[in-house]
């Protein structure tokens, strides 16, 4: 998947949100893997984006990130980047940005359409309903049975859109935003983790990864290590 044999660059979208935390975690994880040299950089401009072999879209406010991307001329480049099949991982607001549809979004909010999922924004409610829970990810990350996950005003994956031709009707009265990216992710969509109440909180589709929670907020870099091995370095 990565054309260059060495000097890999992972970018973290740095328009707004918790991008510094991802940069720290990716740097620590890359150092501990001791493979080829991996640079981790903040991405604010098209040239910076072009230099990246993989991209992480952090948590933050999804409307702010989308609006800033659009008006600073980065949005079209991000859509192309997603279509290039390079690895992209979105956490929380990043998951919203990566989706094909968003429920409870804002009419002027643009999304990248990289994964065939519908994401429900603020699915758990306001900040008082934010929570932390240890989750068992051993079905996809070896031996990780107790990963500390933090959900902050988090979104969930409310529907898998695979096979369903992009339906525009919404069951609720909340605004549903649909991506206008023409890209179609052809890989099968894989549910990585579902909470006991049925909420889907982690999905993978080909080179794209989406999580509701924030592995960058805990002092545990196993999730970032797994992303580098499974998505960035995978041939």
């Amino acid at each position: 998947m990565i054309s260059r044999a060495n000097n890999i660059t992972i970018g973290v979208l740095a328009l707004q949100g918790a991008f510094a935390e991802h940069i720290d975690h990716l740097t620590t994880a890359a150092d501990s893997l001791q493979t080829q040299p991996i640079n981790v950089i903040p991405v604010r401009t098209p040239p910076e984006l072009d230099s990246c072999d993989a991209l992480v879209i952090p948590g933050g406010e999804s409307t702010a990130i989308s609006l800033i991307a659009e008006r600073t001329g980065l949005l079209a480049h991000l859509m192309d980047y997603v279509a290039s099949e390079k690895p992209v991982w979105g956490t929380c607001a990043g998951l919203i940005f990566l989706a094909k549809q968003v429920v409870n979004g804002k009419p002027n909010q643009q999304i990248l359409g990289g994964m065939d999922i519908q994401v429900h924004r603020n699915a758990f409610g306001r900040q008082l309903h934010s929570f932390e829970a240890p989750l068992d990810f051993s079905s996809f990350i070896k031996d990780v049975i107790d990963f500390p996950t933090v959900f902050i005003r988090a979104p969930v994956i409310s529907k898998i859109l695979e096979n369903a031709e992009s339906e525009s009707e919404s069951e609720s009265e909340l605004t549903t935003i649909i991506s206008n990216n023409t890209y179609k992710n052809k890989a099968p969509l894989q549910i990585l983790h579902q909470l006991e109440n049925g909420f889907i909180v982690a999905v993978k589709q080909g080179s794209k990864l989406g999580t509701s929670f924030h592995p960058e907020l805990v002092s545990d870099t196993r999730f970032h290590k797994w992303f580098i091995l499974e998505f960035v370095l995978r041939e």
């Binding site: 949100g17 702010a64 932390e132 902050i152």
Partner: peptide, 18 residues
């Protein structure tokens, strides 16, 4: 502690913003 992480975590999501 975990409760504090959730409180401080929302502020982390606001970073770089107005």
């Amino acid at each position: 502690m975990s409760e504090f992480r959730i409180k401080a975590g929302l502020a982390q999501m606001l970073k770089g913003g107005v």
